[in-house]
């Protein structure tokens, strides 16, 4: 599928904005078009943060979408809010480390990844978003892993470059978990 309308949502601080930016940038590195549209304003402080990423072969028309093809829910409120908008047959990625309820939808592919647990195991809960990113890219094929790495390398250049190996490891673990489930 060439078109992806992705919503990534969670609490502020869970790294949902960065996850979206990496996906959007990686798609461009792969030669596709993309837009990254953040929610901004009061809801970023304490409440839910989300971003919408559209990836398409042709230039992106609307960066605003009604029916996502993929939803990443890093917490329960995000799953409830965006899970019901998900297109039939679409992917719902759920952070199983913090969400224990089930989404009542039989028509979508629900992928539960305990991203915080996996991140803790490799040394830092802060890279839970990268674990989710790895799982997401593995199953949706929205971009190549080479492009994801390049986008991350660009994002974590300079003083942040020391963080790169841990982030790449997290992406790898997420992809492995998604493959093995």
């Amino acid at each position: 599928m060439s078109y992806h309308g992705i919503v990534i949502a969670g609490f502020g601080g869970q790294g949902v904005m960065l996850m979206g930016q990496i996906i959007a940038a990686a798609a461009v590195i792969d030669g596709k078009n993309s837009t990254w549209l953040p929610s901004y304003g009061p809801e970023m402080r304490g409440g839910t943060a989300n971003c919408t990423v559209v990836v398409d072969e042709k230039p992106v028309a609307s960066p605003v979408i009604d029916t996502p093809t993929e939803v990443v829910a890093m917490n329960y409120p995000s799953m409830v809010k965006f899970g019901k908008k998900l297109k039939s047959g679409g992917f719902l990625f759920v952070n199983a480390s913090v969400v224990d309820q089930k989404m009542d939808r039989g028509d979508v592919k629900i992928i539960e990844i305990p991203v915080n647990d996996i991140a803790d195991k490799i040394g830092s809960g802060k890279v839970a978003n990268m674990v989710m990113l790895g799982a997401f890219v593995e199953l949706t094929k929205v971009a190549s892993f080479e492009a994801v790495e390049e986008a991350l390398r660009y994002k974590l250049s300079g003083s942040k470059s020391a963080l790169l190996p841990l982030n790449l490891e997290a992406i790898k673990k997420g992809a492995e978990y998604a493959r093995g489930r």
């Binding site: 930016q21 959007a24 461009v28 078009n33 993309s34 837009t35 990254w36 549209l37 953040p38 901004y40 992106v60 960066p63 605003v64």
Partner: peptide, 10 residues
């Protein structure tokens, strides 16, 4: 508008 200002695109 705020969307053009805040969104990212290549």
């Amino acid at each position: 508008d705020g969307m053009i200002g805040q969104m990212m695109e290549p």
